[in-house]
Each structure stands twice: as C-alpha cells, then as structure tokens.
Design a protein around this nucleic acid. Structure first.
Lengths: 222, 222
DNA sequence: CGAGGGTTTGAAGTGCATCAAATAGTGTGG
DNA sequence: CCACACTATTTGATGCACTTCAAACCCTCG
C-alpha cells in the first residue's frame, strides 16, 4: 500500500507567490507540505479575498476534495519557497477506498481538524485582538507551562493579521497592547515572552480548550 | 453489518433540559437525532457557557469521540422533547474499524462537517448581525432562488441569538434592522421573507459559499 | 538616492456589548 | 377567569473594540 502511494507521489517545489490550486477547480492533486508556508484563501461573493489559514510543514492541502464534487474549496498560494509531496488525487481516492486503515487514519485526521476549527471559532468569537495574538504566540512556540522564551514571527505582520482575522492596523495596536499588558519584548519580528504562565492566564480565559491548545495548524514538523 | 449496527442501537427519548452528554466525559454513546432540537455548549475556562450549535433532526452527536481520547468535546442538552437513536460507542468503533464502506461514509460526513464549520467561521468573522440572521433564515427555509415565503423561528430568540454568536439585545435590534433593510414581515416567531433573491443579495456578499449555502446544521429531516 | 511595500500612528466612525429598565408574554394558583 | 410571578423580549443610554481613512515613518532594494 505504501509502495502504491509512493508510486503516485512526487516531490514538488513552489516559489513565493506560486499557486498550488484554485478555488473551484476539480482536484488533481493533494499536497503534504514539507517546508515553507502556504496561504489558504477564499474569494467572497463581493469580490474580496479572505485568508483562511496559513499552513506550515506537515499539513494536508486539498483533502476536502476526497468527497464529491471533488473540488478545491480554497485557493492555496506559497507565501515563501515551499516543498511538498504532491499526491495524485485519483490514487489517493483509490487507496482510501481500498485500504481501511488508511481511511481510518484520514477519518482521524479529519476529526482532529474539525476540533481545530471549532477552537478557531471560539478564538474569533470570544477572544480580543491582543488575546488572539498571544494565543497564536503560545501555540507557535509550543510553549511549556511556565518560564520565558523568545521566538520569531514566522511571516510578515500583514499576513499574520489576516490569519488572525483582523486588520493590519489593529494587529499593530493589539501587539502594542499585548506588550503593555503582559510585558512581552518586541524587536522587529522577534518576540520575547517573559512569563508563559502569565500569558496563558491573559489569553485562554474565553476558550474551552485545555492548555496547551493542542489543535493548532501552525506547527513546524509533524 | 447493518444488523450488527442495529443490534447496538436503541431509540431513546429525552425531555426538555435533559443532558445527553457532558463535556469531558469518556464516550459511551453516539446519537443520531430523529426529532427535536439539541443544544451543544462548551464551558470556557473563565466559567461561562458558550452555545456551539443547535442541531435538528438527522445529525450525529458525539462523533468526535471516535478518536482518542474518546471524550466528548461538548455538552449536549435537549432544548425540547427529543428522540434519538443511541448507538453504542464501542460498537460504532468496532464497525467503523471493520467495515471500510462505513468508515468512508463517516469520512465523508466529517469532511462535509468541516466545510460547514469553515462557513461558520466566515459568517462570524465577516457578516454583520442582521446578515447573520438573514443567512440563518435562508438556510432554515431551504429557500428557493427567488419568490417569497413564510416561516417560524424554530426555538426561542435568546437561544437563536446565542447560536448566532450575539447577545439577545443585539439579536432584537438586528432583527428590526433586517426588517427595515429588506422589508421582512415580523409577527412574533413568524417571519415572512418578501423577496428571497433580495435577501440573498443583502446577506451573502461577505461569504465565499455558493448559494444556497449548502452546509448548514439547521436542517429538519435528513 | 529614490521608489515602494511594510508598519505604525492619528482621528473619526460603526457595530456590538453592557447595564438598566420598560414591556410583552406565559403559566400558575386562587 | 383574573391577578400574580416569572421569563422572554424590547428599548434606551453608554462604552469599548475594531474598522476605516489618512498620513507619516521605516526599511529594503534597485
């Protein structure tokens, strides 16, 4: 089975700005991201573009196309140089339908993804902008329960703002507010969290997820 | 296989206010709703309760428990008298693992559910309160592309407000605003949409979903 | 050096939440 | 059948968070 899958999978790279797939197209490929960031966007009826998610390494792009009508529901664009494993859509469907353990693994993936999306709704509904940024930082860092740590914002602030569902101006002000409220250090794209436990307390009150907020799309490796 | 499933499934009814499952409990049952409304809620860390969804007939409650650690992620409470098919969690897992077509069907269900949740995020992020109400009405009505129609709000306005992620006061004002903007008729819980096409135009601009907004949890029958 | 995109800052406006209170509606016991 | 109690809903007044429009600043790169 693995051999079969491998036979229909090829490594493929994309440069910054390259498009993996367009929103309403019939699927030909499903990707497993290996490195780099991929932006998922959707076009709204009134013509604007909404950033849906930004995926790091180890995520599947286009899995929704396994079901009729086999069309991509988002556009995927490389935000920086990206390497992927490109899996033939037809082969993936065939293998999924013929190998029960594989289908079960995908079911598990899908259910976990759902949990992640439910948390996303909680975040957008109940967290303030500074809290959403802090939440993102904690998840990005895979932060331990306590202590301090330094990390770098993984892509530019404008995109991060869109990913968190806010305007760039709001992001800028919210980050300043977060600094004021929790004493984080800011130096360009570098952020230092003084006290992870305090940040958690500041951030996680409105959510139901137990910390650390497991289901997070922003993960490097996996 | 169906016989096996049926052997571990029993019809079960709940009165208004009865709890089907609690948030962090290990699963024993998965329910298929047959009639009545079931409210899904989550408790946040700071102690308040957030309404996650309100399910009509034909929906699965607790499917997320198929994956480790086999715990319910929400609390489910009957909002009115409810009838369900209660499926043994152990049996469902066993059948899912041993019957590939069944696993595929669940995978399909899960992927569609994901699509539904993605639309929910769009709604909460980009629609105004009046638009969210209009969107709900259109989906509730399985509205045709044009014409007019009358329908009844399926449960009380306070719960509906929570389901749509807003305060009761906001709901009241937003409904009045929707009347002013689109000329709907209001008489208690009865709503008359004068012009479905116009309502669609008023409501759907900020979303990417094609109308009619298919993935909707509020469906009677299924 | 100059152009252009990313980022910050300022000022004003919108939408929703919150607190408070009035009103409508519903079920109960008398 | 009515009065009461209680809840659901509406209405008013105010505040906060985020958006929007505008402009300044900064930084990189040709």
């Amino acid at each position: 089975m693995l051999a079969d899958l491998a036979a229909h999978t090829h490594q493929r790279s994309y440069a910054e700005g390259d498009t993996l797939c367009h929103q309403p197209d019939v699927a030909h490929t499903v990707w497993l991201t290996m490195s780099g960031w991929v932006k998922l966007t959707r076009e709204t009826l009134d013509g604007s573009e909404a950033v849906w998610d930004v995926l790091g390494a180890g995520h599947l792009v286009g899995l929704e196309t396994l079901m009729p009508d086999y069309r991509y529901t988002t556009r995927a664009v490389a935000v920086e140089p990206v390497t992927t494993l490109a899996i033939s859509h037809a082969a993936l469907r065939r293998i999924t339908e013929s190998h029960p353990p594989f289908a079960l693994a995908l079911l598990g993936h899908s259910l976990r993804q759902q949990e992640s999306e439910q948390l996303e709704i909680e975040h957008r509904t109940h967290q303030t902008a500074p809290q959403r940024i802090g939440c993102f930082l904690l998840r990005l860092a895979k932060a331990p329960i306590s202590g301090s740590m330094t990390l770098n914002l993984p892509f530019d602030k404008g995109l991060l703002a869109a990913r968190l569902g806010m305007q760039p101006e709001t992001f800028s002000r919210a980050l300043a507010r977060l600094k004021q409220d929790t004493g984080i250090g800011l130096q360009g794209a570098q952020v230092t969290i003084q006290d992870v436990a305090q940040m958690h307390k500041y951030v996680c009150g409105p959510c139901s997820g137990s910390y650390p907020c497991q289901p997070c799309n922003i993960e490097v490796g996996g």
